[in-house]
């Protein structure tokens, strides 16, 4: 096999499944559009606020806790992704590799304990 000649043929069912689910979703939506009644009523088209008229700008406030959670998620996701090659190549790594990953996990754990201590994930004010 020359580089530049490799076709990943095992992924063909994935593309077929993608196509099928899309056709199923879009087809169902089309049938729904044909069969459903279309009665225009301005109340139906307004956004729902439990009986009140929709008021105010929809995105005036955004809790910063969500953004902090996203950053934490990136860091932990990268760490977990590094665990997978280490777990697979476990028998072929020398002892240093094993301890290196344990040091890595303990570094992340240090940061994690600091987070909990500082209370970065508190969602209500005490």
């Amino acid at each position: 096999m020359e580089p530049g000649n490799y076709i990943p043929t095992k992924y063909l069912p994935v593309i077929i499944a993608l196509a099928f689910s899309t056709i199923f979703g879009v087809g169902g939506l089309l049938i729904n559009k044909i069969l459903a009644p279309k009665k225009f009523n301005p109340v139906k088209l307004m956004s729902y606020e439990s009986g009140n008229l929709p008021s105010g700008d929809t995105r005036s406030r955004f809790f910063i806790g969500f953004f902090l959670l996203a950053i934490l998620f990136v860091v932990f996701d990268v760490e977990v992704i590094f665990l997978y090659p280490w777990a697979l190549a476990f028998d072929l790594i020398s002892l240093e590799g094993f301890w290196a990953m344990l040091i890595f996990i303990s570094l992340i754990l240090l940061g994690y304990i600091y987070e909990i201590f500082i209370g970065a994930l508190q969602w209500h004010k005490k």
Binding site: L68, V74, F82, G97, A100, I108, E115, I118, A120
Partner: peptide, 22 residues
């Protein structure tokens, strides 16, 4: 191996940043 350990330290920085913001 050494770049990997450095990466561990680099990943510590955003954790500290989030802690400071909180």
């Amino acid at each position: 191996l050494f770049p990997f350990l450095i990466l561990g330290f680099i990943l510590l920085v955003p954790l500290l940043g989030v802690g400071i913001v909180a």
